[in-house]
């Protein structure tokens, strides 16, 4: 090791050299002014770098991020509530249709015991409700109900789209 390489000098200041290599480096430094200057300069840079300053963000940074964060959470909750509301409407309709189909499939038999009688009573009540509902949804009213339902769907769809657009705009680039 006649001349110290940059790699060795860097390892020296990082303490990555073993004892014998360290001793050898020290020996070369004592005999070579050029290497000593290089090492001293590197040590100075190392020392200065340890003291580099933080660059500070604006004073309202934290509150600004928290505001954005709360807004995004709030919008998320509102979106969830809206989706739950729309979903529940569809579920009610689906259950109604399913119930009616089951009513049509169940044979109208006389129940032999009291439990079956009770069950049949509830099924019959439910079936009556379904029949009333189906009477309501007859050919006369179906077009009116369909129109109202479509209109409701369009209006809710518009508001849903609008709320999404607004939340995206407020969140800026946040995806």
């Amino acid at each position: 090791m006649n001349k110290l390489s940059d790699e060795v000098l860097n390892k020296y200041i990082d303490g990555e050299l073993d004892f014998s290599a360290m001793a050898e480096v020290n020996q070369i430094i004592n005999s070579s002014i050029e290497d000593k200057i290089k090492l001293d300069a590197l040590l100075s840079i190392h020392k200065e770098l340890k003291d580099i300053k933080e660059v500070k963000v604006s004073s309202d940074f934290t509150s600004s991020v928290m505001r954005k964060l709360n807004r995004s959470v709030k919008f998320k909750k509102a979106d969830k509530r809206f989706i739950a509301f729309i979903s529940s409407i569809f579920i009610v309709i689906a259950v109604g249709i399913l119930g009616y189909v089951i009513y049509l499939m169940i044979p109208q038999t006389q129940a032999s015991d009291s439990i079956n009688q009770n069950v049949n009573m509830y099924v019959n009540h439910f079936a009556d409700m379904i029949v009333s509902f189906s009477n309501l949804v007859n050919s006369k009213n179906i077009s009116i109900i369909g129109s109202v339902f479509s209109l409701g769907l369009l209006v809710s769809g518009y508001f849903f789209f609008e709320s999404q657009r607004q939340s995206k705009r407020r969140m800026g680039k946040f995806n």
Partner: peptide, 20 residues
């Protein structure tokens, strides 16, 4: 290491070691 070496070379070229 390269970053340090670059800074060191500039340090020497600009005679900053005299300050030390």
């Amino acid at each position: 290491h390269r970053s340090r070496n670059v800074l060191r070379d500039l340090f020497i070229k600009n005679n900053y070691q005299r300050e030390l």
